[in-house]
Design a binder for these strands. Structure first.
Lengths: 241, 241
DNA sequence: CGTGTACTTGAGTGGGCTCAAGCAGGGTGG
DNA sequence: CCACCCTGCTTGAGCCCACTCAAGTACACG
């Protein structure tokens, strides 16, 4: 914290200069002064396993840049069933789909420990409204999210594919970083809600993977648990028809 | 065609003044002259059952406003399997997700007879680039499409729900108009590709619905076939857990 | 050290899959 | 005009994966 330039008045431990949102925002029209002004009011938050960043239906009050951990984006249907629509990881931005609605479209819930910084929605909207190029940038972001969701749909929820294959695909998508073998370890109920299968089936498949040495469990508490995955093996299973 | 104001140089039979894209585009900054200029170069096309408006991977050359019929938006995975991501109906716009990419992200294929008018991509991009408010409007459109796709995902592809329930939900989404009981009648393979189930299962469920009087087949050729649905009955089935 | 939650594992069932054969009907060519 | 074919749809039989129900286990936390 001490190392942050004093002109950046982040109230938490955020390193605003390293922020994805900043990269998202920066374009030729935006001066550093504006950026500093924009960052005013940003706050840093910690969330424990299961804590909600925001709830579906609540008034939109900010967008969140995930700085550590994984966040599940959840939709509830009228019957009360939960369905996980998307998973956000470090560097992703939560709530941007609701930035121009009055209320959040989904809930965002921490899986394990999460650190995120919140940009108040008025700041965000004002900034977007006053910078023309930004809208174009956000449009492309939105379309990228759409593509991501479509991939999710077509890869993970193909009912006629074996659970084992879909599980492998999911695990590959839950990698913490693009290069490492560390994988976010969700609870069995969560994975079931993503793949649309029974929790027992998830447990069986994961147990198989562990027995086969494809997955290794790590970490003790919910907050810090993870898998290490044999990525080539997972990719092989993921490719199976 | 004869009734169109002569200043509107539509080359086909389009009624540009009644176009969804126009409603999409119109904002305070846009003058009528600009709009007329924009509509220059728009062409009208007919497509038979199975004809492609555009193919995934091909260079983006336009966006299409669907004026009649239904269009399936298709993604191919590396194994060559088809998956229908979305269905467009009268008034929807195809290819807008690819408007700022070099190549189309999906294929768009006619189901039955389709009429659509094409806006050349240079016109579209130029128009968007020169009208700031438009980007905001497109951003909201993009986010609405995202929400639609998420609903599609969470309602139709829940693996643990019976095929009968998901079929009912699909049929309700394939209504030709919001108010009528007429439903776009897709082939069994297509419906299977949407729900991620086997074609035989689709056939069985549809046959059941017909026997129960919930669906009535209409039309003879692929081009003009349709269902009439007992909407209350379908809604009841769609609600079942 | 007890308790609760999350996970694991088993047994039995059933929905949907696969394989396979039969059917309908629109289009084509003789 | 009719026979044929070809494609898409229907229907049946048998099987298997994943579901449900249910009991047992492990481990984090107080």
């Amino acid at each position: 914290m001490a190392r942050l330039p004093p002109t950046i008045r982040c109230q938490g431990r955020s390193n605003c200069f390293d922020c994805t949102l900043r990269h998202e925002m920066v374009c030729s029209e935006v001066t550093l002064d504006e950026l500093i002004d924009f960052h005013t009011g940003i706050e840093d938050f910690d969330y424990g396993h299961g804590a909600a960043l925001f709830e579906m239906g609540a008034p939109t009050e900010g967008v969140y840049c995930i700085r550590h951990g994984a966040v599940k984006i959840v939709k509830h249907d009228q019957a009360g069933n939960q369905r996980i629509i998307r998973v956000l990881k470090k560097g992703d931005i939560a709530g941007i789909e609701s930035a121009f609605s009055d209320h959040y479209e989904h809930s965002a819930v921490a899986v394990g420990d999460v650190r995120a910084c919140r940009v108040p929605i008025e700041y965000f909207r004002n900034f977007v409204a006053t910078h023309g190029n930004l809208q174009m940038r956000l449009l492309k972001t939105s379309q990228a999210t759409l593509r991501e969701t479509e991939d999710w749909l077509s890869e993970l929820t193909v009912g006629n594919l074996p659970a084992r294959t879909r599980m492998a695909r999911l695990l590959l998508r839950l990698k913490v970083t693009a290069d490492g073998d560390r994988i976010h370890r969700f609870g069995v109920e969560d994975m079931a809600a993503i793949l649309g299968i029974a929790a027992e089936t998830v447990s069986r498949v994961v147990s198989d993977f562990v027995r086969e040495g494809i997955l290794v469990k790590g970490g003790k508490s919910f907050a810090t648990r993870y898998f290490r995955g044999d990525l080539p093996a997972l990719e092989k299973i993921a490719r199976e028809a």
